[in-house]
Design a protein around this nucleic acid. Structure first.
Length: 518
RNA sequence: GCCCUCAUCGUCUAGCGGCCCAGGACACCGCUCUUUCACAGCGGCAGCACGGGUUCGAAUCCCGUUGGGGGCACCA
């Protein structure tokens, strides 16, 4: 879906912020540019998608642009499979983008592996213009110096190479050492005006000078990420809170980039609360709930996924929590993002999804169910005319009964498989009581010559024969029939199911169960 | 250890000084409907972490404590 709304002006026109730290007014409306920049490692993570969603919603709300950029600077871990999976994930949840790989745009290429020249140029200027310096210290040496001075060895880089004398440099070179490039952190506090947290102060000296280019010349994330954001004109960076502590470094680099003319202003940052998994830990790749495609297999709808993700750290308004992606875009304001971490709650995700299942037109639900029916082994390939007719009649009956699409095969399978292939579940058989045999006999007899084979007639006839005739309570009377016809204790409404199944199959299945209980 | 950050029902949250002895949703427990299960409806359980301030008045502002989370790489 490509969700652009006409109500894009709400909320952005009356921004209270006069200006960013750098003096330029904060971008608003169509000037807003956000980016989604995953590194293609592993399978798509719900946290990743949530971040993308918030950025996307903000840009679309404002009428701005979304840039998709690939941070593939780690050749060892990056893979094309992962890249494909990310593209697929975005498409699935309906997050579209205006610029990116496969789409193009004014700042192409959008893969960092193809932007090396730019990074090399920036690195050289950073060095030439004094924002960065060559650093020869190894981590071991830094630690050693801390230890020698009685400091905590884990303190981080100590600034040793900031002002090396020509003699020292010569000595290092003579040893055959190649330096890394380090950016010099200022000797004053760095203040970040975060969109969701307000002013965050990082005290001078608390953030060590950081490496941006390896000794072998390879540019690192702390360089390429801000450089691309600057060059691509990104105005807002919404990202996970785990990156908050690296923000002062980014801001310092951005300031240098502005000074060198690569961009006009430092982007506005907003740090989203983390999504937590079991045991209050950050949801990691190891947690099964973190796998987006696993939720798709489970049968969450993209609308349900977007809705639930939107609930994690944001609220569309008081007393409301079910909304469509379009409604989210219309209402989304990055300044309304909450700051406290949120736990992934599978039950709630599925409950929300159930609401979306119910919001679907039955024909649409039917189409969406097809892949799950195949995966569940009750359908092969395209449904036949007859199967389609059955499904069209049955889907409305199950629509209020399921929260996730993977429940489809269990609910509808009895209509699609042959009588002999019907699986009667063990717990369904176990639920049968003593009168089951008699109930099945009497029912079969009553149905053989039934004139009108429809739900109304079926109910009237069976009620008369079993409930009245045998004096069995409805609950006990219809249980065996349900098990016989659908193979399960829980199913769509019984008489409608029998009507759809037809007389021959119904009687066949009644007889089959009768035999089994004798 | 250092730096940052968060703090309302079990969970997600509304609340941005009086409308709140705190509202909604999920979960849970009842009841209604009912051929099962759902859906729907009704009702219930359950929370402002603690301590100081500020104020006529604090869930809302300030400070501290405690607790949770994140980050401290030549990964991203």
């Amino acid at each position: 879906m490509s969700t652009s709304t006409g109500s894009a002006t709400t909320g952005t026109g009356e921004l209270p912020h006069a200006a960013t730290a750098e003096g330029l007014p904060e971008a608003t409306g169509a000037d807003v540019r956000v980016r989604f920049c995953p590194s293609p490692t592993g399978t798509p993570h719900v946290g990743l998608v949530r971040t993308a969603l918030f950025n996307w919603a903000w840009a679309r709300h404002c009428g701005g642009s979304v840039v998709f950029r690939v941070e593939d600077t780690d050749a060892a871990r990056d893979s094309q499979e992962s890249m494909d999976a990310i593209v697929e994930a975005l498409a699935w949840v309906g997050i579209d983008y205006d610029e990116g790989p496969g789409v193009g745009g004014p700042h192409a290429p959008y893969r960092q592996s193809e932007r090396g020249d730019l990074y090399a140029e920036v690195a050289r200027r950073l060095l030439d213009e004094g924002h960065a310096y060559a650093s020869y210290s190894t981590p071991e040496e830094v630690e050693e110096r801390h230890r020698a001075a009685g400091r905590d060895p884990k303190l981080g880089y100590d600034g040793f190479d900031r002002d090396l004398t020509p003699g020292q440099v010569r000595a290092f070179r003579d040893q055959g050492r190649e330096p890394v490039l380090r950016v010099r952190m200022p000797d004053e506090d760095v203040v970040v005006d975060d969109l969701v947290r307000g002013e965050v102060v990082f005290p001078a000296g608390s953030v060590p000078d950081f490496v941006v280019v390896r000794a072998n010349g390879q540019p690192l994330y702390p360089l390429v990420n801000p450089v691309d954001d600057a060059v691509m004109g990104i105005t807002h960076v919404l990202r996970g809170e785990d990156l908050l502590s690296s923000t002062p470094r980014q801001v310092v680099l951005h300031r240098a980039l502005v000074e060198m003319g690569y961009s006009r202003r430092v982007p506005r940052f907003g740090h989203l609360p983390l999504v937590l998994g079991e045991g209050n830990r950050k949801l990691s790749k190891r947690d099964p709930e973190s796998d987006l495609f696993r939720h798709r297999e489970r049968g969450l709808l993209p609308e349900g996924m977007v809705n639930y993700l939107g609930l994690l750290g944001w609220s569309i308004g008081p007393d409301r929590d079910v909304f469509t992606p379009a409604e989210m875009v219309a209402a989304f304001d990055a300044r309304d993002i909450g700051a406290n971490p949120a736990r992934w709650d599978q039950k709630k995700a599925e409950a929300i999804n159930g609401d979306h299942v119910r919001m679907l037109a039955p024909e649409v639900l039917l189409e969406r169910l097809l892949p799950y029916l195949r995966a569940g082994g009750v359908l092969e390939g395209e449904p036949t005319e007859e199967q389609r007719r059955l499904l069209a009649a049955a889907v409305p009956l199950v629509q209020t009964r399921m929260a996730v699409l993977s429940e489809g095969p269990g609910m509808l399978g009895f209509l699609l498989v042959g009588d002999d292939a019907l699986v009667v579940e063990d717990d369904a058989v176990a639920s049968l009581r003593a009168e089951a045999a008699e109930v099945l006999d009497v029912s079969a007899a009553a149905l053989v010559d039934l004139a009108e084979w429809d739900a109304v007639a079926l109910e009237a006839t069976l009620r008369a024969a079993v409930v009245d005739g045998l004096g069995v309570k409805p609950k006990l009377a219809f249980g065996p029939l349900r098990v016989a016809v659908t193979g399960r204790r829980v199913s769509p409404p019984l008489f409608e199911s029998m009507e759809l199944l037809g007389r021959a199959s119904t009687l066949h299945r009644l007889a089959a169960l009768r035999q089994r209980v004798s």
